[in-house]
Amino acid sequence: MTPSARNPAAVRETFTAFAESRDEQLRNKLVEEHLGLAHQLARRFANRGEAYDDLVQVASMGLVKSVDRFDADRGVEFSTFATRTIIGELKRHFRDKGWAIRAPRRIQELYLALGPAIESLTQQLGRPPTVAEIAGTVDASEESVLEAMEAGQHYRTTSIDAPNRQDGTLSSRLGEDDAAYTGTEDRLLLALSLADLPERERTIINLRFVEGLTQSEIAARVGLSQMHVSRLLAASLAQLRSSFAQDS
């Protein structure tokens, strides 16, 4: 894959045209021209046990998201913006998938507890938690949490008999009821609850959880401080949670 040799001005011009027309062909052209970057970044993460092709796929998805979200008027080069987004996608991919078979079981189990703990603390606090806060929640030392996070960097293909995040093994979960049914109910309920939020809060929730922007990116997008976005997110999530509690 030959990386793009186009100069930044030409790239910006194409993005400006794409922003106006949202033309599918322009979008494809922009993605194709930058696929080299996705491959390069996938290669950087390839020594961690995940299949290179899978990483290219994840990085390419990140690239597509970058093309869709890039705002040429913000004065940042596309390659810088895309690198940030693609690294974010790769980080998420590693965090959500598998763990090191070489790591001791204690660390594997702790690593598996980290994801849900981080998720719930982030909701509670309205910002990513510190290592100390996570350690307090999973009842482990900060050192163990850091060790587990490091172990989580060296992933191997997941065995279906290895423990997973649902306190069982993947093989023991095969053939169970399709959780998508309750998922659909939850989504409908969520859509109704979202409609009760003010427009600005709805936009922020959408940018955070649908488009996957960070709080600071949202802050720049909607013209508020990151702290303000954090407070609005926390308050909106609390309101959504209470709607859920009432309705279910």
């Binding site: 510190t130 100390a132 850091l146 996070m149």
Partner: peptide, 17 residues
């Protein structure tokens, strides 16, 4: 590992670590 420990002691959140 040193970077992660130092960052954690400096009060970085988990994303920043």
């Amino acid at each position: 590992l040193t970077a992660a420990t130092v960052a954690s002691r400096a009060g970085f959140d988990v994303e920043e670590v």
